[in-house]
Nucleic acid binder design. Structure first.
Lengths: 126, 126
DNA sequence: GTATGGTGTATAGTAACAACGTACAATTCA
DNA sequence: TGAATTGTACGTTGTTACTATACACCATAC
C-alpha cells in the first residue's frame, strides 16, 4: 500500500491515512470491491498502532466509501461519498485557494496547479 | 467584523477564526495596516473566550500576516504569508479536489466552482 | 508623572481527543 | 473443530482546545 504519513502535517494520523485512501479511491487505484490491507499490516507498514488504522477505516465507512466486515477485511464500497452540502464542499476549496493567494501565486499559476492536480485525480477515473 | 463560527465544522474554533481572517486579508477587505478588533470584542461577538481569539491572532502572526503589539492592538502586517513549500501548498488543494471528485462532480463543474471562488478572492486583490 | 482604561499575555483547570497496548470477538479455511 | 486471520473493545497516557482569572504592557488625560 502506497501510503505515507507526514510528521510535519498537523492533522491526526488517522485523518491523514483516511485522506490518502480517499485519494486512491478517487483516482481509481483502489477500485470498487478491492480489499483494503488488514489493519495490522498497514499499521506495521506505517509504524503506528493498529487501532489508529482501524479508526481511519471507520471514518471511511462513515462516509460510505468502505465496507468493514468484522473478521473478514474491509473493501471499497463505492467511488462516490455520501452527499454533502454545497457549503461543505466549498469550504475546504476556499481555504486551499486562500492559502495559494496569500502565498502570492498569480491567478494563472493557481489555475495551473488546480488543473494539474485535477488531471492526476481524474486519471483512472471514468 | 464579519466572522462566524460553524458548529458543524470539526476544526478548532481558533483555526476557523484564523481562516476567516486570512480570507478577509486575501480579498483585501482587511488592508495592510488595518486594525484587527480587540480580542475581547471579537471574543464577545463570537461568544467564546478571549484566549481563543488570542490564539487565532498568534497563529496569524506566526504566518507573518499580522503584527501583535502587547498593550496596543493587532494590525494586518502583510498580504502575503510566509513562504511554504510547494507540497504544503498542494496538499490542501489536493484534499479539497479529492472531496469534490468523490462527491461525483464532473470536471467542468469543479472548474466552475474553482473559478467562482477564485474570482471572489481576487476581487479587491491586486 | 501618574492614574486610568484599554490592550495582549500568562497560568491553571477541565474536558475531549489521539495514539497506544492488550485482550476480545467474528470470520475463514484447512 | 481448531488455528490463523481479521476487526473491535477497553483502559491508559499524553496532548490539545477551551475556559476563567489574574497579570503586564501601552496610550492618553490630566
Amino acid at each position: 500500500m502506497f501510503i505515507t504519513i507526514d510528521e510535519a502535517d498537523a492533522r491526526p494520523i488517522y485523518v491523514q491515512v483516511a485522506g490518502e485512501i480517499k485519494a486512491l479511491i478517487a483516482r481509481g487505484e483502489l477500485a470498487e470491491g478491492a480489499q483494503l490491507p488488514p489493519v495490522r499490516q498497514l499499521a506495521a507498514d506505517l509504524g503506528v498502532n493498529l487501532n489508529t488504522v482501524a479508526t481511519a477505516y471507520r471514518e471511511l465507512q462513515g462516509e460510505g466509501l468502505v465496507q468493514i466486515r468484522h473478521g473478514a477485511g474491509a473493501v471499497v464500497a463505492s467511488r462516490t461519498a455520501q452527499a454533502k452540502s454545497e457549503e461543505e464542499l466549498r469550504k475546504p476549496l476556499r481555504a486551499a485557494l486562500t492559502g495559494l493567494v496569500l502565498a502570492g501565486l498569480p491567478r494563472v499559476e493557481i489555475m495551473n496547479l488546480v488543473q494539474s492536480e485535477l488531471r492526476a485525480l481524474l486519471k483512472g477515473a471514468k
